[in-house]
């Protein structure tokens, strides 16, 4: 074997060993089966963000109902903006850290966290406090800043959005937990669970230029999160989604947890003081059968601490 041949062969072998797990990785990843929970939605109020989650998840039968041992969990908080936690632009880091702890307690093999940020991603990850929270809790934080991470998927029931490039971490994981923060939003009035999923795709511009509300509802049909945890501890009441200063923020000390994104959005909207029917994407998603916006038809557990 001469040198050239040796190099050729070693490159081929390396390339194969690198790509094969990638190709078949998806094959082995199976989505978890969710046991029917006792409640459709849990609303908590009056405690610290992490403590409220302890109660909410207990009401839903514990994290074991959602995460099985040795599973890979993908957590998608809102980390969109280069602002500090009190500015309520990003999901509460204390809550993120507590959710990760519950995942590991339930036996998760790995918890991966990412967002396709709006501001510079390094600054968002660090100044939101989420990078530290994730690392301290033993999770892994992943960049969402490079198009290479995003894989083409087709959104079969989509009307305007028929395909999207979705982050591979989400595609590879067994359990997907959506962790939005409730905020005012200049484009869609409010951003909650469904709107938060704009952070798992690469090309957001397409959504904006092709009927934003329809696209949000379309994407919601693709991969429903196994759990939605709406952080409404600090709530940005105006100037969202980035906010101008802490003056825009009020302390609601609330949290909504549900497997149904539409229900979670409807409940969070009411909490904010806006009727769900005012928000087009909630109406469209309801009509498309993503979930139920009519809260009176749901079995809701209300906890006031």
């Amino acid at each position: 074997m001469d040198r050239r041949e040796f190099l050729k062969q070693s490159i081929t072998v390396t390339a194969a060993s690198v790509t094969i797990p990638g190709i078949f990785g998806n094959y082995f990843a199976k989505t978890s089966k969710i046991l029917p929970a006792a409640f459709d939605l849990v609303a908590v109020k009056g405690g610290e963000a992490d403590v409220m989650f302890d109660d909410a998840i207990k009401a839903l039968g514990g994290m074991k109902n959602f995460v099985k041992s040795n599973q890979k969990v993908c957590l998608k908080p809102n980390i969109g903006w280069d602002v500090s936690p009190e500015r309520a632009g990003n999901t509460n880091p204390k809550l993120v850290s507590r959710v990760i702890k519950h995942c590991f307690d339930a036996g998760a093999k790995e918890v991966l966290v990412f967002d396709h940020t709006c501001d510079n991603w390094r600054r968002c990850y660090s100044n939101s406090g989420i990078e530290k929270a994730v690392k301290d809790a033993g999770g892994k934080i992943v960049s969402g800043d490079s198009e290479n991470y995003y894989q083409d998927v087709s959104v079969k029931s989509g009307k305007k959005l028929t395909n999207a490039k979705v982050h591979e971490v989400l595609l590879d994981s067994n359990v997907f937990i959506n962790m939005p923060i409730l905020k005012s939003h200049s484009s869609t009035r409010l951003t909650i669970a469904m709107k938060n999923l704009m952070g798992v795709v690469w090309d957001r511009g397409y959504w904006h230029s092709n009927d934003l509300h329809q696209c949000i509802a379309d994407y919601a049909t693709y991969r429903k999160p196994d759990l939605n945890i709406v952080d409404a501890y600090y709530v940005m009441k105006r100037n969202g989604p980035r906010g101008v200063s802490v003056d825009d923020v009020t302390t609601l000390k609330s949290q909504i947890v549900s497997t149904d994104m539409v229900a979670a959005d409807a409940a969070a909207a009411k909490l904010f003081g806006i009727e769900p029917d005012e928000i087009s994407y909630i109406k469209i998603a309801n009509a498309m059968g993503v979930g139920k916006k009519d809260l009176s038809s749901l079995n809701i557990k209300r906890i006031i601490l």
Partner: peptide, 28 residues
């Protein structure tokens, strides 16, 4: 041009110098 909501500019504005005002129907 399309009579659908967008607001990406205002979303990103750190000072809200670009803000959304009521437009036709329920649009901003």
């Amino acid at each position: 041009t399309q009579k659908t909501d967008c607001g990406a500019c205002s979303e990103h504005c750190p000072t809200k110098a670009v803000h959304m005002i009521p437009f036709e129907g329920k649009l901003f």
